[in-house]
Computed example of a mutant assay.
Amino acid sequence: MTRLNLVLLLVLLASALSLVHQQYEARRLFVALERANAAADRLASEHEQLQVQKRTLAAPARVQQLASERLQMRPIHPGITEVLALPVAGAAGGAAGPVQRLQGPVTAPAPASATPLAQPEPRP
């Protein structure tokens, strides 16, 4: 009978130690989970702030202002538009002539059977 009591006491102690270890692991994992959730919330908040900043920086009015101030760009105007017309390939497969530079408003392309484009006026 004493032997049985001793074995049961050892089993009881092992069970108690196992229970204490499992509770410790559960608490440790809960703390790690809470830290991960806090980090995820912080990253989500930072992501939202970056999205707002990205939308602000990419606003069309700001882009246009930077283009005109820093890059000295200006809106297109038909009077200053240059159009390059590529020559039609000849029967030999080569270029038929030099590239022509046109100025002025852009119009619809002429059909292939039309006369060649006029030479542009020389620039001053």
Rank of each mutant, 00 (worst) to 15 (best):
A110C: 00
R70D: 05
V31L: 10
A96D: 04
H77S: 13
V20E: 13
Q100P: 00
A59H: 15
A118E: 14
L13K: 01
L29N: 11
R28Y: 07
S68Q: 15
V7I: 15
V31G: 05
A61H: 12
E48H: 10
T2D: 10
E48D: 13
R101N: 01
P105F: 02
P87I: 02
V31W: 08
S18H: 06
L33M: 07
A16G: 10
K54S: 12
P105C: 02
L8D: 09
Q100D: 00
P120T: 01
Q100N: 09
A118Q: 11
L4A: 08
M1L: 11
S18R: 08
V83G: 02
V11Q: 09
E69N: 06
A40Q: 11
V99F: 07
A114H: 07
A110R: 15
Q23R: 12
A108H: 06
Q53K: 13
L8E: 13
V20K: 11
Y24H: 15
E46L: 08
R74E: 07
Q65F: 07
A59Q: 14
V106Q: 10
I80S: 14
A40W: 05
M73R: 08
L8C: 09
A67F: 05
A112F: 06
L71S: 05
A36K: 11
R28A: 13
L33T: 11
A112N: 03
A40S: 08
T107V: 11
S68I: 01
P120Q: 04
L66R: 15
P109G: 03
R101Q: 09
L4I: 05
P98G: 05
V99H: 03
N5C: 04
V99C: 01
R74I: 03
A59S: 14
H47C: 10
N37D: 13
R35K: 13
V7Y: 08
N37W: 03
Q51S: 11
Q64K: 14
